[in-house]
């Protein structure tokens, strides 16, 4: 429950106080703002406490009804517009009349820049930002006249492996790590490691586990 949530008991107490103030004449009904009470009811009502709130709502509505009745009787008393004229004929002071305007002035909002053209322009600009939907196109087929060859390396694996053996044969015997000490290119390192594994498997190079030595 949020901290600002008002409990039904609090609203009920508030209503009792409002009623007392109306009866004692402390509050004049037409000056009473009922909106905050209705808002509190609206904000704190839930399915769990709906039964408590239906009574609160009824009580608040009764006060609202009384307010309408009060306004109606006031208007009935003032229905003769000549009473307004009679008031002016009493020659009230300018300041006294000016006070009647209190809380009656409104500041209206006029936004020239929010013209229809501006909105239209903004809309078009926004639409330009949106990417066009992706079109899935069918790939075009090339005619190879039934003769298609997969590209393969110029040298076979065995030839490349033997070439590699010739490059390292002068280093042997040596430590396993020493054989790759001058390797700078990562891809070449992997390639040469694969050749070395194959050469070990074929027995063209031997490996002593204890001393980590490669030899022929």
């Amino acid at each position: 429950m949020p901290d600002s949530m008002i409990l039904p008991e609090e609203i009920h107490n508030q209503l009792i106080k409002v009623k007392e103030d109306i009866l004692s004449g402390k509050i004049y009904l037409l000056e009473l703002e009922l909106n905050p009470i209705f808002q509190s009811i609206k904000d704190s009502v839930s399915k769990n406490n709906i039964f408590q709130y239906s009574q609160l709502f009824k009580e608040t509505y009764l006060i609202l009804n009384q307010k309408f009745e009060e306004l109606k009787s006031l208007l009935m008393r003032m229905d003769n517009e000549q009473k307004f004229i009679k008031y002016l004929e009493t020659n009230p002071k300018d300041l006294e009349i000016a006070v009647l305007y209190e809380g009656c002035w409104n500041g209206s909002l006029q936004v020239e820049s929010l013209s229809f053209e501006y909105l239209q322009m903004s809309r078009n600009r926004l639409l330009n930002f949106l990417k066009e939907p992706i079109n899935i196109k069918e790939l075009s087929r090339l005619d190879f006249k039934d003769q298609f060859f997969l590209e393969i390396p110029k040298l076979k694996f065995t030839e490349k492996m033997n070439e590699y053996l010739q490059t390292i044969i002068d280093k042997l015997p040596c430590q396993f790590g020493d054989i790759f000490e001058n390797e700078k290119d990562q891809m070449l390192l992997y390639e040469h490691f694969i050749f070395l594994l194959h050469l070990l498997q074929l027995g063209k190079i031997k490996y002593q586990k204890e001393t980590k030595t490669l030899y022929i």
């Binding site: 037409l30 006031l74 208007l75 003032m78 009473k83 307004f84 008031y87 305007y101």
Partner: peptide
């Protein structure tokens, strides 16, 4: 404004 006037009267 009229309500204000009515209340005053």
């Amino acid at each position: 404004l009229f309500i204000n006037l009515a209340l005053k009267l």
